[in-house]
Amino acid sequence: MKRILLSIFIIAASVLPSFGQAALPSIMVIPSDAWCKTNGFLNAYENNGVTSYVADYRAALINSPELKTVISLINNKMTSEGFRLVDLESTLKNIETENALNSVTTSSMGDMMAETPREQMSRVAKADIWIEVNWYLTQMGPQKSLTFEMRALDSYSLKDVASAQGTSGKTYMVEIPVLVEEAVSSYFYDFTTQLKSYFKEILQNGREITLEIRVWENAGFNLDTDMGTDFLGYMIEDWVMENAAGGMKTPSTASENILVFRGVRMPNTTPEGRQVDARYWTRPLVRMLKENNISSKLYTKGLGQVTIVLGQDL
C-alpha cells in the first residue's frame, strides 16, 4: 500500500511542475525597420494620404547573408538557453505555402475557404517576444567600426523589454560577419539579464495586454446605458477589476462608445491550471455580456490585444 502511495506521489510530483505554469514565450528574431530602410527592404505605401511602411523580410533574407548570420547567431544562443525559436524565414515560407494552398482548395461544390480580409491580415508571423536587430558599418578612412543594436519587444504590450547596443573598436581587416558575431557575443549577457528580470516580472504579475471595448454604430445602446444593476461601462470595468492579475486596472480611455484598458495584466494560467492568452482570458466577459442580453463580437490583434465590439454578433 505504501509503495502504491509512493508511486502515486512520484507520478504526481513529476506532472505537477508543468501544470499551472506559464507557457514558455516563443521568440522571433527580425531585422528592425531602420535596418530594412538602410538596406532598401522597406516599402512605403500611400493610403488616403497616409504613408505606411512594410518591411520586405523575404527579400531581406534572400539578399543579405549578414542578416541570416545575425539571425542564426541569436537563434543559436536563445535555443541554448532553452527557448523555442520561431524562425522568420521558415514562417514566411510557411505563410506563402499556406496562401498558395488556400487559393486552390475548394469544396466539392466549388466553394473557396471562408476567410475575411481581417483574418487574412492577421495570418502573419506570430511570436511572444520579437528581437529586433539593427547594425551599420561606419567607415573612417581605411578603418571601419560596427554599431550594433538589439532590442526585445513584448508582442502583447509592444513594450521594449530589453535592449543592448554599442560600437566595436576600429579595425582595418576584420570581415563584417566576424564583427557582427563579436557584437552579439559582447551584448548578449547584458541583454539576457534584462530579459530575465522581465520574465521574473511576468511570472509574478502576469502578462500585459490591451482590452478595447467598442460599440457598433446602430447597436441601439452604448456604454452609458443603464442595465438595471449598473451602467454597462462600469459593469465591464468591475469585471476587469475582479479578473485582472495586477497592474493597471482602470481604463486609459473611457467614453460612451469606447473603453480601453492598456497594460491590464491577465494571469498566466486559470485557477484550473490552463494556460491563458488574451482571447481566452476575456471569455467570461463575453459570457457575462451575453447573460445581460448584449451580443458581442471578439477580434484579436496579435497575441495581446482583444477588441470586443458590442451590438452585433455576426
Binding site: S18, Q21, A22, L24, S80, E81, G82, F83, K196, F199
Partner: peptide, 24 residues
C-alpha cells in the same frame, strides 16, 4: 569559455536559466 561556464552553473543549479519558471 564564458558560455560553457554559464551552462555549467545552470546545470549545477547554482544559476537559474532564462526559462526557469515557465512550462517547458
Amino acid at each position: 569559455q564564458y558560455d560553457a561556464l554559464n551552462k555549467m552553473l545552470v546545470d549545477q543549479g547554482i544559476k537559474k536559466s532564462l526559462t526557469s519558471g515557465f512550462a517547458k
